[in-house]
Amino acid sequence: MRGGVCGATVLIAALSFALSSLALAQDSRESVEADVSTRRIAIESDFSGVRILLFGAVENSTQTAPEDGLYDLAIVIEGPREELIVRRKSKVAGIWVNTEANPYKAVPSYYAIISTRPVDEIARPQLLKWLGIGFDQIKLLAVGKFEEGEEKNFRESIIRIKETQGLYRKAEHGVAFIGSSLFRATIDLPANVSVGEFSARVHLFRNGAYLNSYNTQLNLQREGFERLVYTFAFEYPFFYGVAAVILAVLAGLAATAIFKRD
């Protein structure tokens, strides 16, 4: 295997010598592969967020040491999409009331950019836009109509609120090379994260030029007691309510029995 790859590289190198520089860039260019440490993550009752390791390698790396900084990586993690309603308060008769509401479709519940350095240093804005890297590139589909100039405010508010909730995040030095080709990144998922399919897109750059991307998935699920309560509450709401009442009655009676002995 190894010999085969080496042979092919030599052959391509020899060929490209004779060909144009464009061909050289295309044929011997580096590519990236990656995976996550856990594909299925469980949210349990002691869940207070989780850190996942993303690791990968740059194939055909010409870097000799991690300090070379020849390559840049920008990883975009997107959580399951959800419908949202964004509301804005204004002052009515002296108190703050929600006066405007706009529904949004398919808003990423989670969006993280993890990169070797700030993304605007990695590549030009057009390229970042084309690859969909950056909070500005998040697709937020508003359903209704806006008053003039309001759409921008609403859009920014989603990003701002999600950022304060820790659901939209940037880690500008979150990817590090370990060897000449091996890299690792950590993905932080806070406790309030939505469950479902997450996608991770790993983009490789060299000197501001885009080389290659790799996509992988991870699945976040509710497990254990937490999952039980949640499923019970949403799938059998009536029985959940009855169970909550029975628990309360038992708790109340148990307390009396315990404290009577004193």
Binding site: E82, E83, L84, I85, V86, R87, R88, K89, S90, G94, I95, W96, N98, P103, N153, F154, S157, I158, R160, I161, K162, T164
Partner: peptide, 17 residues
Amino acid sequence: LVAMPGELYSIGPAFGG
């Protein structure tokens, strides 16, 4: 109710889905 909230916007789940 009366004091200016730090964040005028709020996001919530959509209903009816």
